[in-house]
Design a protein around this nucleic acid. Structure first.
Lengths: 216, 216
DNA sequence: ACCTGAACACCGTTCAAGT
DNA sequence: ACCTGAACACCGTTCAAGT
């Protein structure tokens, strides 16, 4: 449950409570209104001064990262329960729908995953790695069963899921339309009418190069 | 070429020149860096005071809208040349690749099209309508030729194109990966392995309702 | 009729002072 | 050890004054 770094002496009771309230309020406000909500408004909603917020999260971006981290934990839980579905095709469809829905319900998550390569903390990268692994496992099962084409990788699935999630105007149109677009993409992932793909999938080298390009 | 409303007496020569330089500089900076570039920086780049910028474009959002309008004109031109391709399948693929690439090359365009339902001016809506018409024509030809499934509409194509464009991290990763994702979606749009889609496509009523919900 | 730099309001961040 | 409201810097927008 704890989102704080592991080896730190525990916070004083009031500090811990404040930290958690800020995180909860921020998560809700970011989900509803996106990143543009003011930091002062979040502090007010949590009943603390703005400086307190900045004591716990040194920058607005760090606060966003903490919220994203929490959500990624939830996504991992979705993946775990999708893995328990026996039918490989059903597991794969459930996975995609869950991941897409998580992003549609939370504008902040989509925005954050787009910026991910810049802003990413080591802890967020770990989450992403675990998510990629989980996606890969479910994808692999579906491929072995001949239900999904063999020339796609976990990274493709995640990119497509985020694409579908941003293919609709999140706060205004019918959010259920994403299921329609997902249906089309799922058909494209099937082995039936699959045509060769150019170029090949993204590699770890691509990510490393990108990270290098932004410093840090 | 003129992006100003039709029935206005012409601007003084220097004013016209200033307006155009601001628009050109803004277009380039938005395309390269997204909407977060400062208005002061744009004004400086165009060699005018910031108040002059605001005389021509009453708000930053209006400036963005003017740039978007220009880009949409370019997209219409792309559509027109795609329409001239005889082979219906080739025309359709070209259309999708062009629309996706236009959005990948211009971060501002993606951002703007996402916000479109709120910010839209009547003139931008006209552009969108023309684009939708053009897409519908090319799509219709491909469907008649049996190359694209019958249960999709122009709105689906545009949503998917914007989704693919935001499926990759625009400034960091390999922009050519969008072609890979587009390949998957195009396979999903083929008639071969098409499974029924839920829910049905977006209607004009949905758009009207969304617009109503934000006032204006 | 149009231009400009200085002034204003707002928001992320920091600081001096409190308990 | 942690909290706070006031102060600071930055950016979108407006205004008083220039030509």
């Amino acid at each position: 449950m704890s989102t704080a770094p592991s080896a730190e002496r525990p916070l004083r009771a009031d500090a811990r409570r404040n930290r958690e309230r800020v995180l909860a309020v921020a998560a809700q406000m970011f989900a509803e209104q996106g990143h543009e909500v003011g930091v002062a408004e979040i502090a007010r909603g949590a009943g603390v001064g703005s400086a307190t917020l900045f004591r716990h999260f040194p920058t607005k971006e760090a606060l966003i990262a903490a919220v994203v981290e929490q959500r990624l934990g939830e996504v991992e839980a979705l993946l775990a329960s999708a893995q328990e579905i026996e039918d490989p095709g059903e597991a794969f469809r459930t996975l995609m729908l869950d991941v897409v829905r998580a992003q549609v319900q939370d504008r902040a998550l989509v925005e954050a995953l787009i910026d991910l390569v810049h802003a990413s903390s080591p802890r967020i990268e770990e989450h992403i790695e675990r998510v990629t692994e989980g996606v890969g496992a479910i994808l692999g099962r579906a491929q072995e069963a001949g239900l999904v084409r063999d020339d796609v990788v976990a990274g493709d699935i995640m990119a497509l899921a985020s694409g579908i999630a941003s293919a609709h105007c999140p706060d205004l149109q019918r959010p259920d339309l994403v299921e329609r677009y997902l249906g089309i993409v799922l058909d494209g992932l099937g082995p039936q009418g699959a045509s060769p793909l150019h170029p090949g999938p993204a590699t770890f080298d691509d990510l490393a190069a990108a990270r290098l390009r932004c410093g840090s």
